[in-house]
Design a protein around this nucleic acid. Structure first.
Lengths: 220, 220
DNA sequence: GTTTGATTCAAACAGTCGTTTGATTTATTT
DNA sequence: AAATAAATCAAACGACTGTTTGAATCAAAC
């Protein structure tokens, strides 16, 4: 039966590269098949539609990352037992699996960030692809952070967690945040270095005293 | 001579709304002219091209914000004189003019964030629009932060400033960061409230001791 | 060796895109 | 009122989009 998965993965690879290079909307099926040197109909034969190809391109890269995050969270919780989980370790478990690929695989980074950005740039159905992939991770880590930071109200915790997502976003974002040549992004680049910079920053932020203690209403 | 600027601003308004609602790439010129109830050629007559329309849509909203940020920075520097500028005030001067529109004008927020996202989702020429608008602001604030935080190396400062950009990004990002219904974004919504949450978080992060002490400057 | 199913192929489908044209209407100036 | 410039209009341009079709090619099973 099936044997020529060659064409299928060749399409995934080429599509991934082109999406990362030029942006998703800038790439047509004909761009892909011409670089992959296959027939136009092959995409619909193997995937069914352009959107289905998109889904596979993205989930192929994002799934394993989040699996690793959950695995590390489980490890942490198992070690800490009933004691309070170490906040810095929690932050690292959430960030490192993602940040690592920033320095190990620029291609994978690009394709993931393209999805994140496109996800909010459009109002398309790409959202579901992403939601399905990160929903479980977010909610499980939120719980863990809540227990590690009992001095924070739920609302405060939500915001600070959100802030962390933004910080992570900036680490993953590609160099040209600012004008090319403006050496804002040409700074140190390795996992350990960046981790050592971001973890203290975030831990300090998380542990900062809560501003409000205004009423008994829990604030959510 | 010119009098019927009516059509021109009507095009800007409709384009802005549609871009914000559906995403830039999802909107065609024909979508715009049909809602604006003008002729198709009007866009090329008044703007020259679709891209030129885009530029005007965005710069109309972003320019005044950054002008206010610079104005507030000047005020701060004038007040502090030779003394060290207050870090929290610096953070607020950078954030508040942006965060305010998040709560005052959802439309303006959406269109700005669409640009930010599209900017990185594509590899298009939209980048220049944004670069030109934020370049001066970033570099002037970077200098001010550097003087307010002399214990940080340049690299450390770069990163922490970047982290702040990410945090701001998350404040501005529209609700559905997570799956709709997952009440992650339905938290408190007013300028003062959010400012009171984000400023302590960031100040704590900025003031956290630097990890590295590898060169002659021995950190703290 | 023929049959069967999976894969590839060239060609066309109907639609939409941004842009241009040239005539027509509207407003301002002389 | 005539002349001039600004603005709007319907209609078409060529190029490109994702998708479909039906025949050609290939591999393995009988």
């Amino acid at each position: 039966m099936m044997e020529a998965t060659d064409t299928k993965t060749k399409l995934l690879d080429v599509a991934e590269r082109l999406f990362a290079e030029k942006g998703i909307h800038a790439i047509s099926l004909r761009n892909i098949i011409s670089e992959a040197e296959v027939n136009l109909a092959a995409i619909h034969y193997h995937f069914g539609s352009k959107e289905a190809l998109l889904r596979e391109v993205f989930s192929r890269r994002i799934k394993p990352v989040n699996e690793e995050r959950l695995r590390r969270l489980d490890e942490l919780l198992a070690v800490s037992g009933n004691a309070k989980t170490d906040l810095a370790a929690l932050v690292r478990a959430f960030l490192e699996p993602v940040v690592r690929i920033r320095f190990e695989s620029p291609n994978r980074t690009l394709i993931i960030m393209k999805l994140v950005h496109q996800l909010q740039a459009d109002s398309g159905d790409l959202r579901e692809v992403f939601y399905d992939l990160v929903e479980g991770v977010i909610s499980r880590f939120m719980d863990a952070f809540g227990e590690a930071l009992p001095h924070l109200s739920t609302g405060e915790l939500f915001w600070r967690f959100k802030f962390m997502l933004g910080v992570l976003h900036m680490i993953m974002a590609q160099p040209p945040i600012c004008k090319p040549g403006f050496d804002f992004d040409s700074v140190e680049l390795d996992l350990e270095n960046v981790t050592n910079k971001v973890v203290p920053f975030l831990v300090a932020g998380f542990e900062a005293p809560a501003t409000e203690a205004r009423n008994m209403d829990n604030g959510i």
